[in-house]
Amino acid sequence: MITIDTFKRGFNNGLKTLIDLLKLMVPIYIGVQLLSLSGLLNIIADIFSPVMAVFGLPGETSLTLIVGIFTGIYGALGTLAAIELNAVQTTTIAIMVSISHNLIAETAVVKKLGVNGTASMALRLFFSLLFGFLYSRIFG
């Protein structure tokens, strides 16, 4: 039976989750803003622009992909908040990050299940790049 206590617990759990996510996303957002203000983001963007252009993305999104691979989806969202993208670009990077997010931790879990970790990581990276490329070519 749903009671007022159910809503209180749900609200408290939701608030705790929000705080946990903000602890990750806000520092990453601030870090990306600092990189942008210092000019380092432009240097990173220039280096990765040729590669990211294959996916119809600006060079800055390389940071989103790298952060997503190492920290997960919420870290990548923190970087995306600081970068201006159109709908196709946002969806392209979202597809790529959703496939290749948190590779290190999830590969460790997969290895414990008896699956080849290297193969799992390689497949996730391959399909992340493949589907990012295909989506950008179809809709970009």
Results as ranks from 00 to 15, higher is better:
3 T>P: 05
7 F>L: 14
9 R>C: 00
10 G>Q: 05
12 N>E: 11
15 L>H: 05
17 T>E: 07
20 D>H: 10
34 L>A: 08
35 L>N: 12
37 L>E: 12
38 S>T: 00
38 S>D: 08
39 G>I: 13
42 N>Q: 15
43 I>Y: 13
44 I>Y: 14
45 A>L: 11
46 D>H: 10
51 V>R: 05
54 V>C: 07
55 F>K: 01
57 L>R: 00
62 S>Q: 15
63 L>R: 11
67 V>L: 15
68 G>D: 12
69 I>P: 00
69 I>L: 02
70 F>Q: 04
76 A>M: 00
76 A>D: 00
77 L>F: 12
85 L>C: 03
86 N>P: 13
86 N>W: 01
92 T>E: 01
93 I>T: 09
94 A>S: 13
97 V>F: 09
97 V>G: 12
99 I>L: 04
101 H>L: 09
101 H>G: 03
101 H>C: 03
104 I>Y: 06
109 V>P: 14
110 V>E: 04
111 K>L: 08
117 G>Y: 14
118 T>H: 12
119 A>K: 10
119 A>R: 14
121 M>G: 11
123 L>Q: 13
123 L>F: 15
125 L>D: 08
127 F>P: 09
127 F>K: 08
128 S>W: 07
130 L>H: 14
130 L>R: 10
131 F>A: 06
139 F>Q: 03
